[in-house]
Write a protein that binds this DNA or RNA. Structure first.
Lengths: 131, 131
DNA sequence: CTAACTGTATTATAACAGTAATACAGTTTT
DNA sequence: AAAACTGTATTACTGTTATAATACAGTTAG
């Protein structure tokens, strides 16, 4: 099951998107699968200390993406099979890669320069090749 | 001189940040240097088709970073020497790399996975390793 | 059935970012 | 000095995000 108590919210992006991503990552990693129930909007909002409508927004988007099934009165249920989970996993990473590539391209880097920069920054501060 | 007429604005990020980056890239590439005048807020806003205050916001930030010198009534002047230009150049790319790395790490990728993804995405759509 | 839960919908408020319109103040040019 | 330019400051409008209160509707457990 998803451990929402381990979801630490930050202020850099909308809360509903952080919840969305958390659920998607849970699916991508196999932590949750088809048939698993999610906590109710009210329960989760209390747990996270946010407004129920903020959770509702995230859940609504999950439903629109076909990840969640909601019936009025009943708890919401994950409805992704393994293929869908793999797709979500790929989407998560591809969207990140797309954003990263776009960002690096816009700064005028070549592909090789970008790869070198990523390589240097991954493990910590880069060597200063130039002041 | 900076050729603002070649600055194509997009809707993915705030205009004032796009202007800011354009000027910084001009400095980093040596297109402008210390002593060069920038077009007035009004002139540039008319050229770009945006509000003068949007340009003003970018220029104010440039001044706060010590890149621009403004006196009421007179045109704003670039005040970065070569060392500052080199620093800006490095900052531009390092900040991009930091953001890219952070983004890719958060999606759970390894360094090798991230490099491979960047490599695949740089020239266009990646091969689908999995459906 | 009833009570307590569930999801859904509506409306309102506040804060913030981005953009815009306008007025004010100083410089430059004539 | 006057006109035309310049930067600066104030205020306002818009959209997004987050929150909140409330009402309604369906399910589940007793």
């Amino acid at each position: 099951m998803l451990r929402f108590e381990e979801l630490i919210l930050d202020n850099n992006s909308p809360i509903y998107l952080q919840i969305l991503r958390f659920v998607k990552q849970g699916i991508a990693s196999g932590t949750v699968c088809r048939g698993d129930e999610l906590p109710s909007r009210r329960t989760l909002s209390a747990l996270l200390g946010v407004n129920p409508n903020t959770v509702q927004k995230a859940f609504r988007l999950l439903e629109e993406e076909g990840i969640l099934e909601s019936r009025t009165g009943a708890k919401s249920v994950i409805c992704t099979d393994e293929a869908a989970a793999a797709r979500i996993c790929a989407e998560l990473r591809e969207s990140d890669a797309r954003l990263a590539v776009q960002m690096l391209r816009e700064s005028g880097l070549t592909k090789e320069g970008a790869l070198a920069l990523i390589d240097r920054f991954w493990d910590g501060s880069p060597e200063r090749s130039n002041g």
